[in-house]
Simulated assay, not measured.
Amino acid sequence: MKPLVRNAVLSSYVELSQSLAIDPQALMKRVGLDPVGLAVQDRWISGKAVTELLELSAAASNRQDFGLLLAERRRFSTLGPISLLLREEPDARSALELLVRHEHMYNEMLHSRLSEAHGLATLKVSLELGETTGARQATELAVGAFHRFLRGFLGSRWQPLSTCFTHGPPEDFGTHRRLLGPALEFDREFNGIVFYASDLDTPNNLSDPLLRTYAQQYFESIAVTRETTELDRVRELIEVLLPTGRCSIDQVACSLGVDRRTVHRHLAARGETFSSLLNSTRTQLAEQLVANPRRSLTEISGLLGFSAPSAFSRWFRDNFGDSPRTWRAERNRRQQRQQRDGAPQRAGVAGPVPN
């Protein structure tokens, strides 16, 4: 399957596009991305589609620096849960090594490598899309984001010895020099940043050793390995696509950058079909949503991808044995009984000691 990236990679994309007088929704739809889905930053989308979107946006706005302008709007939190631990790393080296080691948690097409030799540190950045396609903007976004990350630890006045790109120079160097410094090299053999290795020893004065322990424990509890299965990917995309009303195997295959036969083959290897996975995912979400009395059944129907509440009610009855309204009411009654049954026991334990 083609690599995926977190929605957060497009953080501030809509705002940047609007500031440059281009239509972000129209461009996103051209590459098969859902503008509404950007609100959920931890969802995964096609890396190929994001790469194409950035190229289209640069062309539409006539800005060769579009990827860098997006990198400029990056915040630490864009990295997701790993940002909690990065903030508490004792120095720049351990923070950068951690970011590189767990890059698969936020961007599957990003492959970076940090090396040190002769007093110099070289951070090489590459994007593996699974096919040959223009990726100038995505590359500059990635390199720009790393540059911004390093400045967060080394100070806003820090400058690398050089920032390198394999593609040619832009017509206007203004944004590149403002964001990356004057030492720019194009048509090089790699994309990345070269700087003094001693910069990596810069301590993080904001690090709290005690808080770092807590952050490590939390991160270890949610960290995932690189072996995310195709089943996991399809399930994630089903959850993303259901509210759009366009959750089909063709749409999932498009998001993954493969054809529908490939999706069928991967699911069959795990004893699943697209229909069975769609139904199980929908069932799990329905139980969580209907249990919440603050959500209307009409709203839930839309979130689960049904064209009408009546279709949702029929499906729910087939899977849960009751209408959603009856199921919700019965669940509330059970909870109230449990609370009543538990109340005397708690009162007895906490009650006054008899004389």
Score class of each variant (00 low, 15 high):
55 E>A: 13
70 L>S: 11
288 Q>K: 12
169 P>A: 10
180 L>K: 09
13 Y>C: 04
316 F>Q: 00
148 R>K: 15
160 P>Q: 11
39 A>V: 06
21 A>E: 15
268 A>C: 04
194 V>T: 11
208 D>N: 14
190 F>W: 15
293 P>R: 03
280 S>V: 02
168 G>Q: 08
167 H>P: 06
257 G>C: 01
130 G>I: 08
289 L>N: 00
103 E>M: 15
352 P>I: 06
13 Y>W: 12
326 T>S: 09
182 P>T: 07
13 Y>N: 05
153 F>K: 11
351 G>T: 09
106 Y>G: 05
96 L>Q: 10
281 T>W: 02
313 S>T: 07
197 A>C: 05
128 E>D: 15
286 A>K: 03
147 H>D: 12
312 F>K: 01
269 A>L: 11
94 S>Q: 13
217 Q>A: 06
123 L>M: 08
79 L>P: 02
85 L>F: 00
295 R>L: 10
27 L>T: 04
167 H>M: 07
103 E>L: 05
202 T>D: 13
335 Q>H: 10
189 E>G: 13
176 H>R: 12
268 A>Q: 06
319 N>P: 03
50 V>A: 13
315 W>A: 01
353 V>I: 10
66 F>M: 12
326 T>L: 03
297 L>S: 06
242 L>Y: 00
262 T>L: 08
284 Q>H: 00
35 P>V: 02
27 L>A: 09
10 L>F: 04
276 S>P: 09
300 I>M: 03
66 F>P: 01
279 N>L: 05
185 E>P: 02
40 V>D: 12
174 G>A: 11
316 F>T: 04
351 G>F: 02
144 G>H: 07
41 Q>L: 07
260 R>P: 04
270 R>E: 15
344 P>G: 01
290 V>E: 04
278 L>E: 04
49 A>T: 08
306 F>Q: 12
268 A>S: 05
12 S>G: 08
189 E>D: 15
50 V>S: 11
116 E>L: 13
